[in-house]
């Protein structure tokens, strides 16, 4: 059973997203939370990393953290799904383990 990975760091300052993407197994899901959601914006230098994660499995971003940072749905890299806290809980339940890339 697959893994849920959470990333709460901006990819422009820290390597959490990069390291996380380098350790994904096929079918794993990636959830961006807190400052991690800035990696969801399209047209940035982090896009290739996010696309690698999309090729592996689902990529999600926490809606309230996107909203707080002014990142609108139309600003996001195609394929990333917005989830609320209930969706976060469902993702945790659906995967065998959660790894936080702190």
């Amino acid at each position: 059973m697959s893994t849920l990975h959470t990333v709460n760091k901006t990819p422009f300052e820290r390597n959490a997203l990069q390291s996380c993407v380098g350790h994904l197994s096929p079918g794993d899901a990636l959830l961006m939370i807190e400052d991690g959601v800035v990696g969801a914006r399209k047209g940035s230098s982090a896009t290739a990393m996010v696309q690698a994660a999309l090729a592996s499995g689902g990529v999600y971003a926490l809606a309230s953290d996107l909203d707080a940072r002014g990142i609108r749905p139309e600003d996001m890299i195609e394929g990333i799904q917005r989830v609320d806290y209930g969706g976060f809980v469902d993702l945790v339940a659906q995967h065998a383990r959660t790894v936080a890339w702190l």
Binding site: N8, E34, D84, Y85, F88
Partner: peptide
């Protein structure tokens, strides 16, 4: 923000 996130997650669960 970590404890905010943890709180909202716990509440949603």
């Amino acid at each position: 923000q970590a404890s905010d996130t943890a709180y909202h997650f716990t509440k949603a669960a």
